[in-house]
Design a protein around this nucleic acid. Structure first.
Lengths: 130, 130
DNA sequence: ACTAAACCTTTCCATCATGGGAAGGTCAAG
DNA sequence: CTTGACCTTCCCATGATGGAAAGGTTTAGT
């Protein structure tokens, strides 16, 4: 299977597949005589795994760790849970930050009359920082 | 006022001040004989504005637009409100995405017993994608 | 007056995930 | 036999941030 077909089958585009190989996330695949990369079902399976982990917002080092654990059929689930929990904490932290940004902004937007007059609580806030 | 002092006074570090100048967000400041950048109260005021906008999560193009409006004392608040509203929508969209990531992950983490046994719903989910 | 520290300058490089584009080789269908 | 759709590698760009080098200047301490 060429890289384009593997991309299609896995949902990870060809550019990214090469990238994941370059950063060592994936082992270099077999090459055909024409030097084209050649992928099989297993590789596509791993690519799918990566794609799903990205959709859950895992960063690349975390994905690398999860992938290693996934390949190791005897891994302790403790390890996996630890990585996922840490990521979850991180996500929740970032959500909290964004929520506080959003609520501050929402108050300002609601307070701004938004017409042709120049006075605006949004700019006041950015100016004064109160 | 040297760049270091302006950084201290505004809370925006010197590296970033030069960067904002380089991307055209700030006009090039006066230079002293020694070619050091020379800042006054107005510049520090603008830097503070930028810092606060960053804290509210505005992206640089948005900040550039807000800064232009802020400088224009006769701007219609409508413009400002429009930019802020759009950013707010964007923030809320991203929060929603992250919340759905987090809740999916939370369910998985809770379902994983996290001991020395190898079976793990987190990996199952990444594998199967159900 | 000399020296060392603490500034300042520019320029280059790196991050992280993603992708555009060039230049060139290969393959399949018309 | 040409055309178009692949593939290859390599370089560059993003956005916000910062590290580091190599060099000039100012300030403080002796």
């Amino acid at each position: 299977m060429n890289i384009g077909a593997a991309a299609e089958a896995s949902g990870v585009n060809a550019k990214m597949i090469r990238h994941y190989e370059a950063i060592g996330l994936l082992p270099p695949p077999a090459r055909r005589d024409n030097s084209y990369r050649d992928y099989g079902a297993q590789e596509v399976h791993e690519l799918r795994f990566i794609g799903r982990a990205r959709k859950l917002g895992f960063a690349m080092p975390e994905i690398a760790a999860l992938l290693t654990l996934w390949r190791d059929k005897g891994r302790p689930s403790r390890e996996v849970k630890r990585i996922a929990s840490r990521h979850l904490d991180d996500l929740e932290e970032r959500i909290a930050v964004m929520r506080s940004m959003a609520s501050a902004l929402r108050r300002l937007v609601e307070a701004c009359h938004g017409d042709e007059r120049p006075d605006c609580p949004i700019l006041d806030r950015l100016e004064e920082g109160f």
